Amino acid sequence: MAYDVQQLLDMSQQQLDDLFRASPAGDIPNGEAEGTAIIAPGTRYTESIAKIINFFGWQGKVFDAEKGVLKNKVTPFGVEAIVAKVGKGESWLDGKECIVLDYSATSLVAHWIRDEIRLISPDFYLGKVYWGKERLIDFCLKF
């Protein structure tokens, strides 16, 4: 099944977790991805929150698969900042392979953040954000 952003925004947390668990890690992506934060999944606020975050805070990520790094696109101007190391690793959600976006050694601002992504459709990834070991929010990336 091919997914789109709206379908993910309409899902509950359980549905998002089930989709993540059922999806392969996929290849480490390369290039620019449009990002959408998924906060308060399954509520009527999810879409509004996503739009606000997308405009003011975070628009997505730019991956360099060859170098194994990414930069986040932040601020209303899409400034590329906040670097992470990218590689395959074990998911904290289910112990299976995922793509880990690790900020611990690359960012003073986000050194306690770890993202995990898996491929859910061609050029479309679902992600989990952890703060320390605490699960924070979900997001998606469309290439």
Rank of each mutant, 00 (worst) to 15 (best):
C140G: 06
M11G: 09
Q7Y: 01
G42Q: 10
F77I: 09
E90V: 14
I49T: 02
R44V: 10
K128Y: 08
L93C: 04
L136D: 08
G42D: 09
S48V: 02
G132M: 07
S121G: 08
D123A: 10
W131A: 07
I99W: 00
E66T: 14
I53Q: 04
L136T: 08
G26F: 07
W112G: 06
L119N: 11
A40E: 04
V79D: 02
D10F: 08
W112T: 12
Q13T: 11
K142W: 03
N30D: 11
R135F: 11
V69G: 00
G57L: 15
M11E: 03
W112I: 08
A84T: 04
A22F: 07
F124Y: 13
E80F: 14
K128S: 01
L9V: 12
L141V: 09
D18E: 14
G31S: 10
P29R: 07
G87K: 15
Y45F: 15
V62H: 03
S12Y: 05
E47R: 15
Y130S: 01
E47S: 15
L136E: 06
Q7S: 11
T36R: 03
K128V: 11
E116S: 04
K73A: 09
Q13K: 12
L119H: 03
W92S: 07
N54D: 13
A40Y: 05
G57N: 08
E34T: 10
M1N: 09
I117S: 01
I120N: 01
A40L: 06
